[in-house]
Design a binder for these strands. Structure first.
Lengths: 130, 130
DNA sequence: TTCCTGGCTTTCTCGCGCAAAGCTTAAGGG
DNA sequence: CCCTTAAGCTTTGCGCGAGAAAGCCAGGAA
């Protein structure tokens, strides 16, 4: 009988659903802040929430806007020009799809990562540290 | 009375725990394949599992080795030289920490992203589409 | 011995993330 | 009225990092 009755499918760990536009620390924070605030977030406030510099926040938001995930509204508040950012409907659903893929990763890996194996597995005979 | 009794803490969505070495699609796949196989994975097999080219796999594994997360063992199998890769103990625990942070992100965002709001929130008066 | 094939490695290029400098609008002061 | 200051973004510049392609090397096959 074969040692591996069911060899794992090719691409099992490829995670194609992890959209590069979303799979980025800073933009992940931006999207999360926006999804928790459907009414929108002002530039300055988002800067605080995500701990980003002006330039980085501007650039990342631009990427998200180009991708159609975020929309912007200009106005004034307290006598100063302000920009309000919101998720688009498409942005929300694409973000949800991304998060579901992330959830799969966590489900795959976390249970196996948290428990320390009682003994290190043997290295097969003839194999030597690189 | 103030409009916002509890402004969100600064850095709430910064996710500092998302280690850049791990927060990368290809390496995430590599780490997940390794954590599900403590006995190790051969180069060629990992190539299939993660759907990576030779060069890219080599490069990403190198990054993980430099970071001390992965160790390599050289040997032969079927008359051909092969390299077996395994997680280090440190690699496993750092990966677990990363995954726990990811879990927080998913918990923060997924519930809010999946449910479509019945009506779009109003844009505040004086704000116009950019 | 020369060719081929499998198994990695190295090199190259382009794009992206980040920081720093710049631009614009709006108060506030003299 | 300017001039200055400051808030609120934008643009520019740089360095690293991901991915593709070409290269290298060892072990059979012919």
């Amino acid at each position: 009988m074969a040692r591996k009755p069911h060899p794992e499918e090719p691409g099992r760990f490829a995670y194609e659903g992890l959209d590069r536009v979303l799979h980025e620390k800073a933009r992940l924070g931006i999207m999360t802040s926006l999804v928790t605030r459907p009414e929108g977030v002002l530039f300055t406030e988002m800067k605080r929430l995500c701990a980003l510099t002006d330039g980085n926040l501007s650039r990342h938001i631009d990427v998200l806007q180009q991708a159609g995930l975020v929309e912007a509204f200009r106005g004034t508040e307290g006598g100063r020009p302000q920009t309000l950012y919101r998720l688009t409907s498409d942005g929300r659903s694409r973000f949800a799809a991304y998060l579901e893929e992330l959830e799969h990763v966590v489900r795959d890996a976390l249970p196996k990562a948290v428990k320390k194996p009682e003994r290190l597995p043997e290295v097969p005979p003839g194999f030597q540290p690189a």
